[in-house]
Each structure stands twice: as C-alpha cells, then as structure tokens.
Design a protein around this nucleic acid. Structure first.
Lengths: 132, 132
DNA sequence: GCTTGACTCTATAGTTACCATAGAGTTTAG
DNA sequence: CTAAACTCTATGGTAACTATAGAGTCAAGC
C-alpha cells in the first residue's frame, strides 16, 4: 500500500505521515523500485494509535515515549499513568486560565456600549489604563 | 531612555520590544549616535497598552488594528466591540474543547490501575483500539 | 590611555505540528 | 505514448516570541 491509500484509510494527511516518519513515530519501511513508501496493515494500526493519541492532544514526544514503553511489555506502567495524570493537570490549568481570561474579556466588553465612538470607547479607554 | 530601561519599566523583555517594532506595533524612533534605540514616556504608555492587550490574549494583528482604530477618534467603535465579542466566542469554544478533552483523559486514566504492567495497561490498550 | 563589564546591535535558529509549494520523478489509464 | 494522478525531497510558512552568535558602544576604574 502506498502513502495515499494509508492516508485515506487512517484519515491522516500524506504530509503528516511523512512527518511522523521523520519524527521516528513510524519506522521507515520498504520502498518500491521507484522509491515510493510501501506500508502494510500493521502501519495502519500504528497510525491509528498515533491519531488517537493526538486527538487527546498528546505531543509527538509523548507518543514516541508511549510507543517505546509499549515495546517493554513486562515493565510497570506507572510512567504511562504519570504521563496521563500530568496531562490532565495541564489541561485543568489551561481551562482555569481561559476562564479567568473569559471574565476579563466580559468585563472589558461591558465597558463599552455599541453606539459609542472610538474617542469615547470604554474598551479602548480601559485598555489604555495601567492596572495592577 | 534606552531599550533596557524601557523593558524594566514595562516588564517586557528587550526582545519583545524589538519584535513589536518589527511588527509595526511601535514606531521606529530615533537612534543614538551609536545606533541605540531611544524612547520617551509615550512609548512606555504604548507598550503598556500592548502588554495589557496581550494579557487578554489578543494577537499582535488585532492589537495593530486597535492602534489604528485609536487614531480615528471620530469613528464608531463597533469594530472594537466586534473584535472583543469574537474573542470571547473563541475562548468559549476553546474552553469547551478542553473540557471534552478533560473528560476523555479522565476516562482513559480510569482504565488503568497503578499496579499494572505495560502489557496489561488499560491505557495503552484503550489507545490501541480503533473507535468512533 | 586602556581595559573591563554592562549594554546594545543585527541576523539567525529554535519552539510545535504540521500545511503549502516548487520542481522533479513514477506510475497508470486511455 | 501521453496526460493525469501520484509520489519524492527540500524549503518556507504559521505565532510570538526566546536564545544564541558575533560585533559594536559606552561608562567607570586603573
């Protein structure tokens, strides 16, 4: 199977696949006589794994780690748990930041009525004031 | 005042200031004989304005727009209002995305107990399964 | 006068996970 | 046999900086 078919089967773009290969998430496999990448069904599964991880916003570095861990079946999986825990924490932090931001933006928005001119615009005035 | 002092007064890094200049958020002002940038107190205010906007996660392009608008005092400020509204919406969307992500990550995390081995790790298994 | 240190200058590379493009080669269908 | 569709590599772009290199400037102390 060539890269285009793999892309269709997995929903990844052709460039992503080449990118993952460069980043060592996919082994560089055989090439055809004309130097085209050739894949089999195992790659389809691997790529779906990667896609699934990406949908959870895991970084390529983290995914690389998971793949490596996956090849040590006997080891404990605390590292995996830790990674996910850490990720959950990061996301929680980011949500809090954004909620703060949301509040600030709402306050800002309320400082101007729509019929105002730039000169009197409460938003621009607020932004110009030095605070905290 | 040279760039280092401006940086200290505003809490921006020296590089950021140069970056803002390159991005046309600050006018390129006078230079000293030795080609050092020279600033006055007006620049301090301008930079504080920019910093305030950045703390609200407005992009440099949006800030550039606001600065331009600010120079048209007679015009209506609907554009300003629209920009802020749009931003609020974007942030709300992002928060929702992250909350979805949070839920997925929690579910994933619950699929593995800490004492497991890689081979049996519920997380890795879950990630390997093709879904949806 | 000279040196040392602190400061500044420009230009460039790196960050992240790709997307877009150029220019070339390969394969396949008509 | 040719044209379309596909693939290849290499490069540049995204956002808002940070970090670095290598060079120049300036003030103070000896």
């Amino acid at each position: 199977m060539k890269i285009g078919e793999l892309a269709k089967l997995t929903g990844c773009s052709v460039q992503s696949i080449r990118h993952y290969e460069k980043e060592k998430l996919l082994a560089s496999l055989r090439r055809s006589d004309g130097n085209f990448r050739l894949y089999d069904s195992a790659t389809v599964d691997q790529l779906k794994f990667i896609k699934h991880c990406r949908s959870l916003d895991l970084s390529l570095a983290e995914i690389r780690q998971l793949i490596a861990l996956n090849q040590q079946p006997g080891m404990g999986c605390e590292d995996v748990n830790r990674m996910v825990d850490c990720h959950i924490e990061q996301v929680a932090l980011r949500i809090n930041e954004l909620q703060d931001l949301q509040n600030k933006l709402m306050t800002l928005r309320n400082s101007c009525s729509s019929e105002s001119t730039v000169k009197e615009c409460g938003i621009l005035q607020t932004l110009s004031v030095t605070r905290k």
